[in-house]
Amino acid sequence: MAVADTATGQDSTAGQQQTNWQAPPPRKRHKSDPYRPVHLNMLPMMALFTVVLCALLKDYSSDPVQISPSPDTRLPHSNTKLPPQKAVQIAISRRAIMVDNSKVAEVESGRVKPVYKKDNNPQSMFIVPLFEALRKKADQEKLIAKYNKRRRELQFKGLVTVIADKRVPFRLLTEVLYTAGQAEFGQYKFAVIKTQGS
C-alpha cells in the first residue's frame, strides 16, 4: 500500500495510521453484569450435515449387489459401465481363492498349492475344493430354481463374478475358470473398478 501511495505522490499517512492502530482493551466485566449465554447459529451446520447424510444414504442404498474385495486384493481399472449382478462370487487374491467369502484353497507365488489340485498334480487345471464348493452352490441354486419355476430371476444361469487381483497370472485365472466350468458355471463376469469419468 505504501508503494502505491508514493507512486501517486501522496504521503502514506493512512497506511501508517492503519499499522499503528491497536485494538481497544477488552472491556472488563463488572461484577454486577449478568452472565448471558451465546446463541450459536446452528442452521448452516445443520444444512451441511443434511447434505452429507443424504449423499451417504444414497450411496449406501443404490447398490443392491455388494462386491467387497479383500484388503490384499487390488482390482484392475476399466472403463466398463455394466453394473454387477447377483451371482456366486469367486475371489482370487495373491494368497487364497474364496467362494462367497469362504476360503477354499491357498495360493503361493501365483499358483494354487498342488495339495488342492486333482491327484496332487501341480500341472492339473482342476482345483478340487473349489469344484466342491461351486458344486454345492450350483445344487443350492438349482433347488431354489426348482421351487420357483415361474420366477425367471431365480433360475440357475451358471453365472459367477470373478473378483481377481490385478497381479494374478492368467494361468491361475484359467484354472479357476476351468474348474468353474466343470461345476456348470459357464458365464463369467470380471469385477473391476470403474475409472473416473467413464
Binding site: F49, V52, D59, D63, S78, L82, K189, K194
Partner: peptide, 23 residues
C-alpha cells in the same frame, strides 16, 4: 447426525465396482 455420519462413512465405498462380460 453425528452418530449416523461416521457409521455411513465407514460403510461408504469411494470407488465404484463394475463388471466385464467374458465367455
Amino acid at each position: 447426525f453425528l452418530a449416523m455420519i461416521p457409521f455411513l462413512l465407514m460403510c461408504a465405498a469411494f470407488f465404484q465396482v463394475s463388471v466385464i462380460n467374458a465367455s
